[in-house]
Design a protein around this nucleic acid. Sequence first.
DNA 1: CTAAAACCTGACATCAATGTGAGAGGCAAG
DNA 2: CTTGCCTCTCACATTGATGTCAGGTTTTAG
Lengths: 133, 133
Amino acid sequence: MRPTSQREGALRIGELAVRTGVSVRSLRYYEEQGLLSSTRSAGGQRHYAEHDVERVAFVQRLYAAGLSSRTIAELLPCVDSPSDENSDAAMARMAEERERLSAHIDELLRTRDALDDLMATVRAYRDAGQVAV
Amino acid sequence: MRPTSQREGALRIGELAVRTGVSVRSLRYYEEQGLLSSTRSAGGQRHYAEHDVERVAFVQRLYAAGLSSRTIAELLPCVDSPSDENSDAAMARMAEERERLSAHIDELLRTRDALDDLMATVRAYRDAGQVAV
DNA sequence: CTAAAACCTGACATCAATGTGAGAGGCAAG
DNA sequence: CTTGCCTCTCACATTGATGTCAGGTTTTAG
């Protein structure tokens, strides 16, 4: 079934939302933030291309990594045209974010270890019976 | 002897804030959320013990790992008294959060890889000269 | 004793992504 | 043309941790 009579591969916002698991509201927000672009129908409705599914997934990934819209917006031009002159600034930014991300990962690993220790302690108490302290 | 002064090792909220790098406002918030307790002076001012420095650090660590106040509040009793009967529920909660945390770490690792790929791509373009695509 | 510094409570502000709802218009099918 | 669904813009609400301010009290230093 092709619900569209549009050009090949053109997606309406609702379809893109379903395909990416991101709300329609958020897709519009991404556009407002310059993270996603669309063409418009004569009537003003947004049309997306197939590859935007991938782009939205990437944006979501960066969001999940704690990057802000602003930061993501700085990196994306680099994804679109890696040879662009903007890439110097974007590279610096990316290196910076990579560092931040690594540090965060390390912190999370330490936290997981702390949780493991805590769970081990609780298990030890429990398995030893509720006797002596 | 100063009969009216604080007990040995008692910290005022400002001191605890400095020692932990957490704002006074946040320390009060932690107390409101049941993550931190204090004794009060006759005049109503909060006093903390040395070990609260450690506790605040732990709470911060969990916050940084994305746990909510509510979740942290469920885990802490377990830290305080590991043999408590609450520990069954807390253990389940902890296991759950550990899983969530692991999944998140994996996601972040994949994101870091994606950033690395992106940076490599940009470098490749750059090092190859600005040849037309 | 006095004044400064720290603290108290309570309330409102902030940020960022997203939810939600109103009112209006686009678009395909019968 | 009409109907029903999808979409449009605008605008306000939400959440959670924290900032900030106001007006008053406590503690400490001099």
